[in-house]
Every structure is written in C-alpha cells, then in structure tokens.
Design a protein around this nucleic acid. Structure first.
Lengths: 195, 195
DNA sequence: CGATATAGAAGCGAGTCGAAACTATTGCAA
DNA sequence: TTGCAATAGTTTCGACTCGCTTCTATATCG
C-alpha cells in the first residue's frame, strides 16, 4: 500500500544470497586456486568414499562431467588431488585429496570469518532457515540432497559406528558426518529404494 | 562432547550458502547469458543513475574494472545494455538496460521460485539474519554496502520524493528503492563525509 | 549375443578471471 | 602553467570455466 516499487522480502533474500556468493567467489581466488577448483577441493574434503567420482561432483555442483573432469585434472596437475581406481566397475575413477590438498581445504575463508562474528543462536537460526531454502531449490531443480550420512534413511547405528543399509557397508565414526550422493534424508518422505 | 568430528553450525551455514550459490549459478545459464552477465544485468536493473559505471559494478561484484568491462561489452554486443556518455567527466561511461535487457532482467529465476515456497515470516527472518552475515562479510572485505537509497544517511524525504544530501540531487519516488554506490547505512556509525 | 546405458575424457568456442600495460582525462601543486 | 600523479575505462595475456558434442571404454539387460 505504501508504494508500488517496494522491494519484497523475497527479493531482499535473493539479493543477499547472490551478493554473499559473489563476495565469496571473489575471495575464492586465494592461493593458486579459482572458485571452481576450490569448490571441488571442498567437496572432496567432505564426501565419503562412495561419493568421490567425477559424476558425483558434477551432480553436486549442478555442472557436467566434462567440466568437472577438467577441473579435477588441473587440481591433479597442481598436486592437490590424486586419482585412485576403485575395484569392480572399471569405468569409474575416484579422486582423493593429497596431503597438501587436505591442508588447503581446511584453511579458513572469508565466509567462515564473517560467520564467526555472529552468535551461536543466530547461526543456528540461519542454518534452520537456509535448510528450507536449499531444500526448495533442490526440489525445484531435481537435484540430490547430498546430506550427511548420519541423517540418512539408510543409516543404522551399530556399536559406536554405523552401517549403511543401502550399500550394505560398515561405516567408521568419522564417516557419519561426511556427505553422500546416495543420501536420502530421514525426515523426508522416505519411500525406500528410489535414491 | 558427543563427537570430535561434529559439524559446527558455522560450517553448516557456510555450506548451505555455497551450495545455494552453486545451484543458482548453474541456473544462471538460461537464455543466452552466463552467470557473470546475468549478475551485471541484475546490478544495472537495480542501480540508481549515479551507480551505473563499470567501476561501480566492479566494486559491487568484488571484481576488477577490466573484467566487468569485457562482460559489459559482450552484453552490449547482445543488445541488452547500451553505453551512455554522461556530462562533465569525460573519462566516465555509464551503461543502461535496453528494452530487451530490462525484460530479461525481470524474468524469474530458480532462486526466486525456491524462495516463493517459504512463508512470509520465514523470508523476513532469513532476510534479517543474512543482513548480519553480509554486513560482516562486507566489513571483513572492506567493501561498500550498496544499500538502498532510502536507507542512506544522506537521504532526506522531500515532498513525496526525496533528496540526496551528499550529491545534492533531487530523487524520484522510484529511486528510493534503487541501490547506490555512495550509500552509507543510516543505522551504522555515520561519521559524515567519509562515504 | 547384441543394443543400449553409463562413466570418464577430449575437443570446441565463447567467455570469465586477475593482472598488467595502455589511453585519455582530471585534479593538484609547485 | 606546466608537470605529474590519480583515476576511469579499455586492451591484451594466459589459465581456466562452462555447456556442448563426440569419443572410448565398460556394464547391463533383453
């Protein structure tokens, strides 16, 4: 009623996210990486052993196999990742961080520093709200959630560790907090095998 | 205490923002634009008449004059923006949207659609929280806020319209909701002329 | 078997990116 | 007034992203 040109909360949020992402991207040129390489490094540092193939990264980034293939190649040339050939399926290849890659992936970035200036309560609130946004975006875009192993329908506590009922694999403690391309959020409508 | 590998809220928020930005970027290839061109188009659609020069866009994006110069050139080649030469200072140039550019800038994107699935209350909460995050990031990165004209220290209501006390210019109604490279948030520590 | 699907990679062309060099102005100061 | 540093924009460079198409190997299913 006040004026026809008023900015809606939706647009405010949209611009806030986009601007934040832009600033973070411009910060992504630290060291000798670019934002895409940094994203790949970051993904590999969080992905569990079932989720480290080029196609998984492409799916996570909403990109293509061809594109991430090149990004991983340049990361390998710089010595931050290395290819490992897994077992059964000879078409696949997996990438893992090298020691220097691991070190680089854990260095703090601008976004972390900015977020550190907020209170614990604020962070928890933002996390809750943004989860809804990301959930909506993922649903709209028909993407996979790539959530944490421990929040998965197929995750089953076992002794101190865990067990994946989908892949029928034993899981170490640290793997509970890694992301998985097969993850199906427990809270969501879990209609079993679709993945 | 529960486990040493637990993911902090800070990292959750960081990953949520980054993933959201990635998905939005992959969506930014609609029409015949790429994400950078889309960002430039979006900026120009919201910038007031004092803020449409390449250097302003570079500052907003945390990029360089050289880079945005090329982006604007390709946007001009596609007919979405056109250069206009302003008055006094012959070094400067300003870009404005063409009719087709304006049309393209107002088409809804993935992020808008996702946000539309949230309640008004949620959107208002997220906006409040993200403003803090962006504020911190801008401060850390020593960037300008690029806030709305009406939220500026130099903004003065005048009749139904407004007046800028910094540039000593009259402002139309619609200009109150545009972003300005000179904006100094009213709430922040406004120590006058620094800009 | 063979058809088809899938994983990864290579090549293409447009374009981004920071960095540095370059041009044209402007403003300031000796 | 002349000189010179600061500023705005552009150009060029090399590395790289990106979607796209094609290619090669393997898998899978009928």
């Amino acid at each position: 009623m006040e004026n026809r040109h008023a900015v809606t909360d939706r647009d405010v949020v949209k611009h806030l996210i986009k601007r934040l992402a832009r600033i973070d991207a411009s910060d992504g040129w630290r060291a000798d990486l670019n934002p895409a390489q940094r994203a790949a490094l970051d993904y590999l540092s969080r992905a569990n052993r079932f989720s480290r193939q080029p196609s998984h990264l492409a799916s996570y980034l909403g990109s293509t196999r061809g594109t991430v293939s090149q990004t991983l190649k340049s990361l390998a040339a710089k010595g931050y990742v290395e290819a490992v050939t897994p077992g059964s399926d000879k078409r696949t290849i997996a990438y893992q961080l090298t020691e220097s890659g691991r070190k680089l992936a854990t260095t703090s970035d601008l976004l972390s520093e900015s977020l550190d200036q907020l209170s614990a309560g604020s962070l928890r609130d933002i996390a809750t709200q943004l989860r809804h946004v990301l959930g909506a975006a993922i649903h709209t875009n028909r993407q996979k959630p790539f959530g944490l192993c421990k929040d998965c329908t197929y995750f089953q506590p076992k002794n101190g560790n865990g067990h994946c009922r989908l892949l029928n694999e034993e899981l170490g403690v640290f793997e509970r907090d890694q992301i998985c391309h097969e993850q199906l959020p427990r809270s969501a409508g879990a209609s079993a095998t679709s993945a």
